[in-house]
Design a protein around this nucleic acid. Structure first.
Lengths: 191, 191
DNA sequence: TGGTGCGGAGAACCAACGTTCTCTAGCCTA
DNA sequence: TAGGCTAGAGAACGTTGGTTCTCCGCACCA
């Protein structure tokens, strides 16, 4: 097995275990067992657990945002539809097997106070998401697109937390309805 | 020191440490040191760490909800103002020293997958909060108070997460503005 | 064919932690 | 004052986990 494949398998194992059960809960030996990569190789690829955690989060960040953007691009036929497509994607995500909330919220709660590097990756993810939403609202004819984006971001985070804790994918519905109302209000402010 | 005082001091120490730094990060010896209660007494009051965590969360749940309800009661002069008062209280909370997000979201992310008892306390807190918001919206002249309550809940959770990760108490503003719009739309649905 | 270096399995090491045990000092009671 | 109960300080115990080390087999090369 070459380095690239080992790295991929390690990241796959890390994502499955860390996301599914928490970071402190999962030991390096579990990662080794699940990935089939020897401990020696593991520490060649990632010189410490914190390193592996960072890498797992970074890869997940990219994939997650790409998946969201792809869905919105495919399903929104006009800029007005884009924000709502975000919540449709959330609903699908909430229903996936093994859904356990936002990896970045979870790792921030667990490690944010003790690992500045993990905290930084978590914040970078949220900044990127806000930036993405700002891109969507900037294409709309509204008075304050950034303010609208921040409202949508609030709904996205809220829905994710509620879905995680309740286990109900339908947590996306109130968020979507709220987004619809906010969008309509922003688009027709004076009517 | 009698049992009651020991219990209080232990819960104070647990709240400070667990909330501030995470649960796995903090050892029982840290609790002992901060509380000034001997290990023997500690294990008399709480026969295991999980016990202590549960008790800390239960006490925090009560205090947190009472504080919120008190503020709303004191500041909302009409039922219409009550939902917005919730967000004013959030803003104050977000600005407190040592604010680090919602203890229940954090502990759920850290232990939800491994400790069913902690998960249950976390869910109970969220259920109680939803119930509280339903009480507020039930007093309004709106078509679907429960739906409005779920929208508000989404905003509350979202604002809390964003405030925690960004460190910005102003995360309450988009949530409050959104609540205002949603409230207005629900109160005057046909205009 | 004999040596050499690489990779894997797993033991080993060390620290941290949850929990229990021991020892001692003080205090209450007879 | 003597005896025993209590509580605290801290050692001890067993486990776990992050990280490193050892040993062995195997492929490659002179």
């Amino acid at each position: 097995m070459d380095l690239d494949e080992a790295t991929t398998r390690l990241l796959d194992a890390a994502e499955h275990e860390f996301y599914g059960r928490g970071i402190h809960t999962v030991g390096m030996d579990t990662i080794r067992a699940r990935s089939g990569v020897s401990l020696k190789r593991l520490y060649q690829c990632f010189p410490s657990k914190e390193n592996l955690v960072e890498a797992y989060l970074a890869r997940r960040d990219e994939r997650w945002r790409r998946s969201l953007a792809d869905h919105v691009e495919r399903h929104a036929r006009t800029p007005d539809e884009a924000p709502l497509a975000v919540f449709d994607w959330l609903h699908e995500w909430f229903g996936e097997d093994g859904f356990r909330g936002c990896a970045f919220i979870n790792s921030f709660g667990e490690l944010g106070a003790t690992s500045p590097r993990v905290a930084a990756v978590d914040r970078a993810h949220k900044d990127a998401l806000r930036e993405y939403l700002r891109g969507l609202t900037a294409a709309l004819d509204v008075a304050d697109p950034d303010a609208l984006a921040d409202q949508l971001l609030t709904l996205v985070e809220g829905a994710t937390v509620i879905a995680a804790m309740s286990g109900e994918p339908t947590a996306a519905h109130p968020a979507r309805n709220a987004a619809e109302t906010l969008l309509a209000a922003a688009l027709r402010p004076l009517r």
